[in-house]
Simulated scan of single mutants.
Amino acid sequence: MRPTVLAVLVALALPVATAVAAPPAHSNVPAYVTAAINDPARKSDVGDDDRRKLADLMTFAEVKPGQVVVDLIPGSSYFTRVFSAIVGPKGKVYSVWPNEYGIEAKSDVQTSKALVADPHYANVGVLMVPAKEFKVSEPVDLVFTSQNYHDYPDKFMGNVDPAVFDKQVFDSLKPGGLFVIIDHVAEAGSGMRDTDTLHRIDPAIVRKQVESVGFKFDGQSDVLRNPADPHNIKVFDKAIRGHTDQFVYRFRKPG
């Protein structure tokens, strides 16, 4: 059985024993990203923004006003809230929950649904879908998932074939659309060995799987990298929890 998303969020909030040097931040953060981050409705989130490198990630993901964005397995809706502010009233954000994951994260699903009921987030919708049938009701500009790509092949999700899932994401995107994946780094050469035990995945297998369905690798960001992470312990281990080494990959659908 999977740890709940609540446990993951608690883990992220705890300090790490090893000091982590912060990578240099982007100097070209668009004004609309800065404005979204400064939205007063996000006041409960701002304490995490520096650690989670929010401005850097939103800049890297190329989110823009008027876009249609998928926040896939949105957890506490931390990213959903800032996506909503960036895309604005002419855009739309879909919080997409696989049904199987939702069983393990009922409180977070309720958080997503409560967000939709708030008029400030009128551009947000919630979709519940089978893990093996990722789909959205309209073509989208961005599919974004943080720390959850590694879950798809696991038993509790129904042992989804990552390549099948990646093709479904590909088909959901507009030409030129982006698929951004953030996840915990596993040991080099380990493939998917540690997805259900350490909750990590080898970045090389992710890139191979995603590119196999037609995506073009479009860049990576190192803002969440941590060389002090040994890659062979659980992401919840007190020695590293909240500061795991994470890769950030961007893939583009040819347009």
Results as ranks from 00 to 15, higher is better:
144 F>M: 10
51 R>A: 12
79 F>C: 05
84 S>L: 02
55 A>S: 15
135 K>G: 07
65 P>Q: 09
142 L>D: 12
68 V>L: 05
131 A>Y: 01
75 G>D: 13
110 Q>M: 07
85 A>W: 02
144 F>R: 08
118 D>I: 00
127 L>Q: 15
143 V>L: 08
76 S>G: 14
141 D>N: 13
50 D>M: 04
126 V>Q: 12
102 G>N: 08
110 Q>E: 15
73 I>A: 14
49 D>N: 14
146 S>W: 07
50 D>K: 13
134 F>I: 06
54 L>M: 13
49 D>G: 02
135 K>P: 03
115 L>R: 11
75 G>Y: 06
61 A>H: 05
104 E>D: 14
92 K>Q: 13
76 S>L: 05
120 H>T: 12
94 Y>L: 15
89 P>K: 06
51 R>M: 07
66 G>S: 05
136 V>T: 15
86 I>S: 12
107 S>D: 15
63 V>P: 11
63 V>D: 11
57 L>Q: 14
101 Y>I: 03
115 L>F: 06
87 V>Q: 11
90 K>P: 00
138 E>C: 01
63 V>T: 15
130 P>E: 11
57 L>Y: 08
62 E>G: 06
116 V>G: 12
120 H>S: 07
125 G>L: 09
127 L>K: 14
66 G>H: 04
143 V>E: 10
76 S>A: 13
140 V>S: 11
111 T>L: 14
52 R>Q: 13
135 K>V: 01
141 D>L: 01
122 A>T: 01
47 G>C: 06
72 L>I: 01
94 Y>E: 10
141 D>F: 00
143 V>C: 09
98 P>K: 04
140 V>N: 11
142 L>S: 09
145 T>V: 07
65 P>M: 06
73 I>V: 15
101 Y>K: 05
122 A>L: 01
121 Y>E: 07
119 P>I: 01
69 V>H: 11
49 D>R: 02
119 P>G: 09
123 N>Y: 03
101 Y>V: 07
106 K>I: 03
115 L>N: 09
137 S>W: 02
114 A>C: 03
65 P>L: 04
68 V>A: 15
52 R>V: 03
146 S>M: 14
93 V>M: 08
90 K>S: 12
110 Q>V: 02
55 A>W: 03
134 F>K: 12
57 L>W: 04
127 L>H: 11
59 T>M: 10
71 D>H: 03
138 E>A: 06
138 E>D: 10
79 F>G: 04
144 F>W: 15
59 T>D: 14
133 E>C: 01
143 V>H: 09
96 V>Y: 13
90 K>V: 00
95 S>Y: 02
56 D>Y: 00
96 V>I: 07
103 I>S: 12
97 W>N: 08
106 K>Y: 04
141 D>Y: 01
99 N>L: 11
72 L>H: 14
115 L>D: 09
92 K>L: 11
121 Y>S: 04
61 A>D: 12
105 A>T: 03
121 Y>V: 01
69 V>R: 10
134 F>V: 04
92 K>D: 09
141 D>W: 00
52 R>I: 02
136 V>C: 09
116 V>P: 11
91 G>I: 00
110 Q>I: 00
